[in-house]
Amino acid sequence: MPVYRYILRRLALTIPLLFGITLMAFVISHAVPADPVTANLGQKAMSDPEIVAAFRAEWGLDKPLPQQYLIYLGNLLQGDLGRSIKSRRPVLEDLRAFLPATLELATASILFGAILGLILGLASALWRNSWLDHGVRVVSLFGVSMPVFWLALLALFFFYARLGWAVGPGRLDVGLEPPPAVTGLLTVDAFLARDWVVLRNALAHLVLPALVLGAYTTGLITRVTRSAMLEVLSQDYIRTARAKGLPTRTTLTRHALRNALIPVVTVIGFSYGNLLAGTVLIENIFAWPGIGQYAYRASTSLDFPAIMGVSMVIALIFIVTNLVVDVLYFVLDPRLRAS
């Protein structure tokens, strides 16, 4: 099957999923015990029956549920995710302002997690049952067992407050002028502006939160890499490769690693969505102005439209990354193309 046909098929399968997600968001937001009118309108507006009626009409709250869902869908398609109770701005605008910081953090985390996880996992599998293997296994279990918000506090306490090795919370030092916004990712924008001082500072601020956020993912990727590699190494074709006298290095890279990478790529793909979600638990601690902090504030003040907006966006990114991973797979694995 040619790649474009595969992509089209996967896209077609994504459409019902998207509908499902909107339906779920609709059901959750209509299961709110609080009246969406009181949730969305201020106290003052509530006392004006005309405004209430207009709001009901706008969101179609006076119509039967299936019709309401269609209206909700229509609003979504126009990018209308409602208005945040807290910021009083459209949720979409808020998300646009906060998303880049989170994307930058999650991307740094996945890079760190994937590189370190692959190295540790491979080393662990190759020197199986050595002290290195045992050490890596324990450390990777530590990684998947630590509450990320606790790790964040500990890391800030030790590496910033006590040892002074890391820079403080936030994306840049106070007083440093951020580069002109192009992508919203400070590192990329600083690079584009050739502003090396800001670039170094932005990277320094990125290190600690990215390491903390990526701890779970690193543990996970290490574990998956290790077990995938062990499984592949026990296969007949590896024995064949060794038997026909291939150098160990070639056997490992060309035969073993390529096959072991398949499950690893899947985990990396779905970890990205989890990293985006995980920011909810740490951005507040690192004063990182992303959707995680936005969602944290929204959840503690029960700003419902904002919470739904964040969940929908993260679910969307989650679906897209999975789609990309599946396509990558298809390109990597000749067996899939043949069938």
């Binding site: 909810v280 638990l281 969602a295 959840s299």
Partner: peptide, 12 residues
């Protein structure tokens, strides 16, 4: 399709 903590957060 929703990351665990996000969906749990929305429902809660």
């Amino acid at each position: 399709a929703f990351p665990t903590i996000i969906l749990a957060m929305a429902v809660a």
